[in-house]
Computed example of a mutant assay.
Amino acid sequence: MYYNPYPYFVYSNHYPTWVMSNHSPASPFPGYLAMPTNPTTTSPFPPVDTHKLKSSAKRIQTIMQQAQLLTDKIDGSEQFAHDLMNAAQLSNKTEVDKLIASTGISLKFDTKYTPDNLRVLFTESGCCALTLILNW
């Protein structure tokens, strides 16, 4: 089954027979509306190459380990969690970045915060990225 956005063109014999007298016999579906059935048509997409995907999956594991450093520090230290949340609520970006960097994170990261949460975007040189959203 296929979707036809113009259903009034499906029936080639929607005109009376006397109007169609000079035309060839009606086919069930006009050729320009039927779905392509030729399996030899080429795909508009390049062939599948999983090398970059596998490389990204491998490199995202290191990013996740870096994010784990931050979450472990927040979970393990009440003072750190308080300082981080307080700095974010006061919109002190340099203090937030300094606190996050103090956990041992060596990757490039960007922080954004709202009154509800803290977002930390970890990136690694065009390969992949991980966004960590911590609500309070």
Rank of each mutant, 00 (worst) to 15 (best):
Y3R: 03
N4W: 10
N4Y: 15
N4M: 06
Y6G: 01
F9Y: 13
V10Q: 09
Y11E: 06
Y11H: 13
S12Y: 07
S12F: 03
S12A: 01
S12L: 03
H14E: 09
H14Q: 06
H14C: 03
Y15P: 00
P16Y: 13
P16V: 08
W18H: 10
V19D: 02
N22H: 11
N22P: 04
N22I: 08
H23T: 02
H23Y: 12
S24K: 14
S24N: 09
P25T: 11
A26F: 11
S27P: 10
S27I: 13
P30C: 00
G31F: 10
A34V: 10
P36N: 12
P36Q: 05
T37E: 03
T37M: 06
P39K: 03
P39I: 05
T41H: 09
T41V: 10
T42R: 15
T42P: 09
P44R: 15
P44Y: 14
P46N: 12
P47Y: 03
P47D: 05
V48Q: 02
T50E: 05
H51P: 04
H51A: 11
H51C: 10
L53A: 07
S55M: 06
K58S: 09
I60W: 15
Q61I: 09
T62C: 03
T62P: 00
Q65I: 04
A67M: 10
Q68H: 11
L70H: 03
T71A: 08
T71N: 13
K73S: 07
I74K: 03
I74Q: 04
G76I: 00
S77C: 04
E78Y: 12
E78V: 05
F80I: 01
D83G: 06
D83S: 14
M85T: 15
M85G: 11
N86H: 12
Q89N: 11
N92A: 10
N92C: 05
T94C: 02
E95L: 05
V96D: 03
V96R: 03
V96G: 06
D97H: 11
K98V: 00
L99V: 10
I100Y: 15
I105C: 08
S106L: 06
D110H: 15
D110F: 12
T111S: 09
T111G: 00
K112M: 07
K112I: 05
Y113T: 12
Y113H: 14
P115L: 04
P115H: 08
R119F: 04
R119V: 04
R119Q: 09
V120N: 01
L121H: 15
F122Q: 00
F122T: 01
F122P: 01
E124T: 14
C127N: 11
C127Y: 14
C128N: 12
C128A: 10
A129E: 13
T131N: 12
L132Y: 14
L132Q: 07
L132P: 00
I133K: 14
L134Q: 13
W136M: 08
